[in-house]
Amino acid sequence: MSSGLINIFSIALGAILANNFIFSQFLGICPFLGVSKKLDTALGMGVAVTFVMGLASAVCYAVNEFILVKFNLEYMQTVAFILVIASLVQFIEMFLQKSMPALYTALGIYLPLITTNCAVLGVVLLNVQNNYNFIDSLVYGITGGLGFLLAIVLFAGVRERNVFADCPKCFEGFPIALVTAGLMALSFMGFSGLSVFG
């Protein structure tokens, strides 16, 4: 049991820090750059992504285990998972609109945008590649989302201050944001030595 817990802890640590989806796997870069101009919208996007990544991990695990493996269709994973994620996001959107309008308006346009977020597809494909069981998949999905949340919130904080920085005209806006992202990825490299010994 304790080895299982340690296993889960090491998955979580890896997903949040050492193998952060954005800074070391370069997945989900488009929302990371697109929705990080303001801290509160970045927070909304991060929460929405965490939510969808966790759910998608669980549902895709079931789809893979009970449908694809059974019919020997593992090679169709990418197509099947895209199908699952797209309809899952649509379903969540409708569900939230009806039952939790407050959350729906808070997440706003970010929810449908997640359909095209490669981090979500990435996490479910990695789950299968790493042979994670159901609990591991769920943990990896949620903590991967938390890693995304951490990255985008930190980045948005830096970008908000960057606006006031006196930088050369040709670097203003997007170029300096890319430089910033690169530097943050470098600093996250510092976590790559982290591991849990069990």
Binding site: F71, L73, M76, V79
Partner: peptide
């Protein structure tokens, strides 16, 4: 492959 994916698509579509 075609049948399984078509059925999956149809089921998800129905659910939606």
């Amino acid at each position: 492959a075609v049948v399984v994916l078509a059925v999956m698509g149809a089921v998800f579509g129905l659910i939606l």
